[in-house]
């Protein structure tokens, strides 16, 4: 009850700045956030800052294939991180690959969040039959690991980046639905919902304008973590040859093409894209970890 009163009486703008201050109180989270910001900028600006367009086959010279880091091409272009078997500059490949990875991660986490949150809200608000049906579906989904659901979807839909996004959405929505329902069940009993019902506001309005904003904190935390998971899973699926195409490689695909050369000692084709992937995922996880601590209502009081 005390918690509840606290939340009600806290002034809105003060809460946001307090959260921000809380968030940056952790050095790890601050580093993670800045790293993530840099990565996003690099990905956004890739067409302008990368030395080469790795998707444009005209710019690739097969004669420059498998050059070690620091080599120079005939045209004077320096391959800081080496080249892959097609003569593709690894640095450019990473910058462009980050675009795919981030896009897939954000897109799938966002779509899954919308579907899952809506389902969870409906389940909690409607109760009875609707709730049973939705939650059974959630249980069914959660009893299988993500990678199995993703493999199942890819076996059905076929290979490709778009299908990976669809597979990730289908594999992840249930997590949101379960959490949102649990939160919404608690919120539903509070006075402000009762007041909104007394005012005879339409159901959708209570659902989306009153219930939803108060269930968003856990959704934000899960969504952040899911972006990292989705990026990792996309890379994994691309590595297995089920995602991105060879001509437009994502990070996973770059690592995959480097795999066969790894055994002969050409480490850089797999190594550097892997580092990029790792840094991205760790940065997102650090931010998510801190968000969970900051947004947790138990820590607010």
């Amino acid at each position: 009850m005390a918690e509840h009163d606290m939340q009600e009486t806290l002034p809105e703008p003060g809460r946001l700045s307090k959260h921000l201050a809380d968030f940056f109180a952790s050095p790890a989270a601050a580093i993670g956030f800045v790293t993530l910001l840099v990565i996003c900028c690099l990905a956004l600006l890739a067409p302008w800052i990368s030395p080469q367009n790795p998707y444009d086959l005209m710019q690739l010279d097969i004669m420059d294939g498998r050059l070690p880091p620091g080599s120079e091409s005939m045209t004077g272009l320096v391959y800081h991180l080496g080249t892959d078997s097609q003569g593709r500059d690894i640095l450019s490949g990473i910058l462009y690959g980050l675009r795919t990875s981030l896009l897939v991660g954000v897109l799938s986490a966002f779509a899954a969040a919308i579907i899952g949150t809506t389902a969870g809200l409906f389940a909690a608000y409607m109760g009875r039959r609707t709730e049973t049906v939705i939650m059974r579906l959630v249980d069914l989904q959660l009893s299988f690991p993500t990678i199995l659901m993703a493999l199942m979807m890819l076996a059905i839909l076929g290979k490709g980046v778009l299908n990976v996004v669809i597979a990730l959405i289908i594999a992840e929505w249930a997590t949101y639905a379960r959490t949102v329902r649990a939160t919404a069940l608690v919120e539903r009993e509070k006075e402000y919902i009762e007041a909104a019902r007394m005012l005879r506001l339409p159901g959708w309005r209570i659902l989306f304008r009153h219930l939803l904003p108060n269930c968003l904190a856990p959704v934000i935390v899960i969504a952040t973590m899911q972006v990292a998971r989705a990026i990792g899973l996309e890379a994994t699926l691309s590595f297995l040859g089920l995602g991105a195409s060879v001509t437009e490689p994502s990070l996973g695909m770059l690592i995959s093409t480097g795999y066969q050369y790894l055994l002969t000692g050409l480490y850089w084709i797999s190594f550097f894209p892997g580092i990029a992937l790792l840094v991205t995922i760790v940065a997102i996880n650090l931010v998510g970890d801190r968000l969970r601590d900051v947004l947790n209502p138990r820590n607010a009081s």
């Binding site: 990292a228 990792g232 690592i255 790894l262 055994l263 000692g265 797999s270 992937l277 995922i281 760790v282």
Partner: peptide, 29 residues
């Protein structure tokens, strides 16, 4: 353990091969 969560399994596998099989030659691939 955070690192263990974040490291992509397939990439760790490749690095294990690189270190223990290719560089050190201790274990088969």
């Amino acid at each position: 353990s955070i690192l263990g969560f974040s490291l992509p399994t397939f990439w760790v596998g490749l690095m294990l091969i690189m270190v223990f099989s290719v560089e050190l030659g201790w274990l088969p691939t």
